[in-house]
Every structure is written in C-alpha cells, then in structure tokens.
Simulated scan of single mutants.
Amino acid sequence: MRSDSEADYTTYVAARLPALHRAAYLLCGGDKDRADDVVQVTITKLYRSWKRASRADNVDAYVHRMLVRTYIDEKRRLWSRVWLLPPGDDASAGAGAEGAAEPYTTIDDRGVVVAALRKLPPRQRAVLVLRFLLDRPVEEVAEILGCSVGTVKSQTSRGLAALRAMLPDHPETIGTRGHV
C-alpha cells in the first residue's frame, strides 16, 4: 500500500474505531473480547482491501457490511462456540468499548439493554444494531445482510417486539433512532 493510501486508511480507522467497537459489542451480545476479535479481523480485511473500499460511494456502509459479515462468519465457526473458561457476567462490563459515545439517554442501565440484545437471535440483533444504532436505512441493511427488504422489516418488527417484552419499563425508547 502506498504511504498516502496507508495514511488515509489509518485516519479512517482511527476516527471510526469507537463506533466499530460499539457496533461489534452489541452484535456480539455484550461479549467485549469477541467484539474486539471481530473488529480486529474487520480492520485487517479492510487494510487488505482499502484501495477498493476507499473508492466505495459510502465507505462507512462498506465497512459496516464487512463488520456484520465478519461477525456472521465468526459465529458460524465451530471454535467460536468453545469456551476455555466459563463465561463471566458481561453485565459488569457495562459500557462496552472505551471511549464510545453513550447512545442511551433514557435507559440508565445499559447492561439491561445489552443483556436483552444478547437474548435475540443473531439475525434480529444484527438488524436492530444496523438500523437503530448505526442508523442505516432498510435497503442498506438488506444489502449488508444479503436478504430482502421485507425480511429486514419483519426481523426489525420481531426484534423490537421481543425487546419491548423484555424491557417493559422502557417501551417508549425501544425502536427510536439511536436506541434499540
């Protein structure tokens, strides 16, 4: 990679890293270590394909697509289901990626929301994170996940209904922009 292109890559990743960590943390159901792995693999893939990625009409959408696909690929791998140690209580991890902006303004206990997201099927979790936390339009989410717009809408509806049932004290915030 040429030095000017490498500088562009470094600048882009440095600016987007907190948001990538936050999205991966939520996709991984609050598992900070797994989220770190997903982000690391994603930015490594991005480095290898930076020339193509930097020419994309929407680089952020391109990278989010890479992040979600990396998450799905990691989820499919058998070794990702093996725990060397018993899983800890991730609710104590709380805020997710260091330095990440706080997206919740009316729900005080972020751990409750992350725990609720963790209970959703991976596809619903991915749809909700992309739609509401990354503020991506339905069509773009469909493209990222490789499914139809109707599937995104139905997964969004089911995911929001499940979250509302799990978080009955906060139904007004579930499904608003910036809030899952």
Rank of each mutant, 00 (worst) to 15 (best):
V141W: 00
D33R: 08
R48I: 08
V39L: 01
H170A: 13
F132W: 07
E139C: 09
S157V: 11
I144Q: 07
A97V: 12
A97Y: 07
P86F: 04
P122C: 09
V113I: 10
G96F: 00
L84A: 11
R77D: 12
A126H: 00
Q124Y: 05
L133Q: 14
E74M: 13
K119V: 14
A165S: 13
Y12N: 02
A116R: 02
E102S: 15
Y47Q: 10
R2W: 06
L17S: 08
C147V: 14
A101P: 09
Y71C: 04
S154W: 06
V63M: 02
W83C: 14
L78S: 13
S157N: 15
R34F: 05
R2I: 08
I107F: 02
G111P: 05
T11N: 13
V68Y: 02
R2P: 14
S80K: 06
R123E: 15
R131T: 01
V39R: 00
E143Y: 07
S80G: 08
G88L: 11
R22K: 14
Q124V: 07
L134G: 01
M1R: 08
A162F: 09
G178D: 01
I107T: 06
D73M: 07
L160G: 05
Q40K: 10
V141F: 02
T106H: 10
G29N: 02
L78C: 10
A101K: 13
L27M: 02
A95E: 14
I107N: 04
R136L: 14
I72Y: 06
R76I: 07
A15H: 09
L117Y: 01
V63Y: 01
R158A: 13
S5T: 11
G88T: 10
L117P: 03
W83Y: 15
H170Y: 11
V13K: 04
R125Q: 06
L67Y: 01
W50P: 03
H179E: 08
L145T: 05
I144V: 08
T44W: 06
K119F: 09
P121H: 15
K119E: 15
P86V: 03
S154K: 09
D4V: 03
Y12P: 01
M66S: 10
A7P: 00
A161H: 09
S49A: 14
L145I: 04
W50H: 03
E143Q: 12
D108H: 12
L46T: 07
A53T: 13
V82P: 05
G178V: 04
Y12H: 05
D135Y: 05
P171N: 06
A97C: 12
H170L: 04
R131G: 03
Y104L: 15
S154G: 06
D90T: 14
D36I: 10
V149H: 14
H170S: 12
K51I: 10
Q124C: 10
M66F: 08
L120Q: 00
R76G: 14
E102R: 15
G150F: 05
G99F: 06
D90M: 12
R34I: 03
I43R: 02
A19L: 13
A53S: 15
N58C: 09
P122N: 13
M66A: 13
L167V: 06
L128T: 02
L130W: 00
